[in-house]
């Protein structure tokens, strides 16, 4: 997703100004000149200024390139799926890992990611399970990262070394 500087500039300016406005709503501790709004206001102003300078550069070369360029992948459904599968997989992990536990969630996600990348489903199911088991073993059982066990919670005492 590529946009022309003539659009990018104002977008950044807007973000910067928005930050400054939001910062004015912060409570001010009494008796002191510099409150929690000082730094957000400074960084917001910085954003706005940098955005302005992009806008000016954009105006100078306004005839170069389209205003908005759709990325190639969005025109090919397989690539688009590959792309969106990544954020979707992360969100799915966040939602599923507590109820299902790490082992099942990781297996499902690895399976989905590999199958989408044209690995044969049977093969990717086996590989996904092996990798999920290995990660679970290494990180939860040996390194004691508190990964959720899901349905295995009751017996997880035997699985943490």
């Amino acid at each position: 997703m590529r946009v022309h500087d003539i659009i990018l500039g104002p977008a950044v300016v807007l973000a910067g100004v928005g930050l400054c406005v939001w910062a004015t709503a912060l409570p001010q501790p009494q008796g002191f000149a510099y409150g929690p709004n000082l730094f957000p206001t400074l960084t917001g102003s910085g954003l706005a200024l940098a955005g302005l300078s992009i806008l000016f550069a954009g105006i100078k070369k306004r005839r170069m390139g389209p205003l908005f360029e759709r990325p190639d992948w969005s025109k090919r459904w397989r690539l688009a799926i590959n792309f969106w599968l990544i954020p979707v997989a992360i969100i799915a992990y966040v939602l599923l890992v507590e109820p299902l536990g790490f082992l099942i969630t990781a297996t499902l996600l690895l399976f989905a990611l590999m199958t989408a990348n044209r690995v044969h489903p049977r093969r990717s199911a086996v590989v996904a399970l092996i990798i999920a088991l290995a990660i679970n073993l290494l990180f939860a059982s040996i390194l004691h990262v508190p990964l959720p066990w899901g349905p295995l919670t009751a017996v997880s005492g035997w699985l943490i070394w």
Binding site: P151, L152, T153, A154, V155, S156, G157, I160
Partner: peptide, 24 residues
């Protein structure tokens, strides 16, 4: 099967609360 086994174990552990802890 693992899930079912685990599920039943969970129920029994919830009942025996005074025997803390029965899991990590």
């Amino acid at each position: 099967m693992i899930a079912m086994m685990a599920g039943s174990a969970w129920v029994s552990s919830a009942q025996a609360q005074d025997a803390w802890p029965t899991r990590p």
